[in-house]
Amino acid sequence: MMKQVELVNGDLRFPALMAGNGEPVILLHGFPDTYENWAVQINALADAGYTAIAPALRGYSPGCQPGNGDCSLYAAVDDLMVFAAQLGGRVHLIGHDWGAVVGYLACAQSPETFCSFSALAIPPVRRIPQALLKVPEQVLLSGYMQFFQLPLAPEAWLQRGDLDGVTTLWQRWSPDWEPGLYLDNAKHTLAEPGVIPAALSWYRSLFKVWKKEHRQVRGWLGLNIATPTQILIGENDGCMSPKLLEHTLVESDFSGGVELQVLPNAGHFLHLEQPEAVNHHLIRLLNNTQCE
């Protein structure tokens, strides 16, 4: 039975969906998305004997928008570590898009906390900067990230009409797929007060390289990942080119082991497009990596 719960970090309150009994599994969503779209995975994980909990990312609900506007990756990793502690200290982790980026960093920084890690739609982030030189198409695909650095214009673009900018990104990133209710759910979350500016703050903080938190994150990027890891990529991903994998997936970067699954007939939102295939891989890794 899935229920609405709340996770807390300081004075920030993060709405979450939760179901099941067993080892805890945290699921982190991405942009422009919502924690509610993990519902199919939450039910599947609960049926497989796990406690699945999917919180909103920092900023994606009025109650978890920090007063200082800090939506940096450093802060997001801190949120995740606090959630893990609240759930008993050792957890499995599943992340999509930004959630996967947070996962790579958290597993590198705190391997003892994470029993397994499944990264959806994002190749290993450690080597993406160098890979951009070898996969020029990704520079074009990532053009939205430069656009998001501008003041005000990105907010206006995303919010025009019925959040038409959000629709455009979903269509571009998962072509030949009709998202239906999933897109409606995402729009409902993104229409809440302050959520779109907070979501854009995630991108804007990436370029604040002078901040000490940014230096800390860069240090984590250089660490090996000792958590058993799998990477799931949709072969038609229109946000992150699958060609990046040739230059980012280096087995020696993953001392706990890594495996790759490229899913046919799926784009960026692969867990929503091909839930049965994705759930099969998620549960298989969980079953092979119990938290001791």
Rank of each mutant, 00 (worst) to 15 (best):
L73Q: 10
N37R: 13
D11M: 00
D33Y: 08
N68Q: 00
L17S: 09
G88Y: 03
S61W: 02
V77N: 03
H92W: 04
L17T: 04
L80S: 02
D47R: 15
V91W: 02
Q41A: 01
L93E: 12
A84D: 01
H96G: 08
T51E: 09
D11W: 01
R90I: 03
Y50G: 04
Q86L: 04
A100N: 05
F14D: 02
L93H: 09
V82G: 06
V82F: 06
I122R: 05
G63R: 07
F114G: 11
L80N: 08
L28S: 13
Q41S: 14
F117V: 04
L12Q: 03
G67W: 08
T51F: 13
W98C: 07
G69N: 00
Q109E: 14
V77P: 06
L105C: 08
Y50S: 04
C107L: 00
L105Q: 13
H29N: 13
A48T: 10
D33L: 12
N21T: 15
V102A: 12
R58K: 00
Q65A: 03
A48W: 07
F31C: 08
A44W: 15
L93W: 10
L105K: 12
A19V: 07
E36N: 15
P66M: 02
A54E: 14
M18N: 11
P62M: 03
L120T: 10
N43M: 15
V82W: 02
G20P: 09
S72G: 03
W98D: 09
Q65W: 01
T113N: 05
D33K: 03
F114R: 11
C71D: 01
L28I: 11
G67Q: 06
L105T: 11
T34L: 13
L120H: 10
H96T: 06
S110C: 12
A46G: 12
A106V: 02
P15A: 07
A16H: 08
W98G: 02
I42E: 15
M81E: 08
R13T: 06
H96P: 05
N37A: 14
A121I: 05
P62G: 01
D47T: 15
G88H: 04
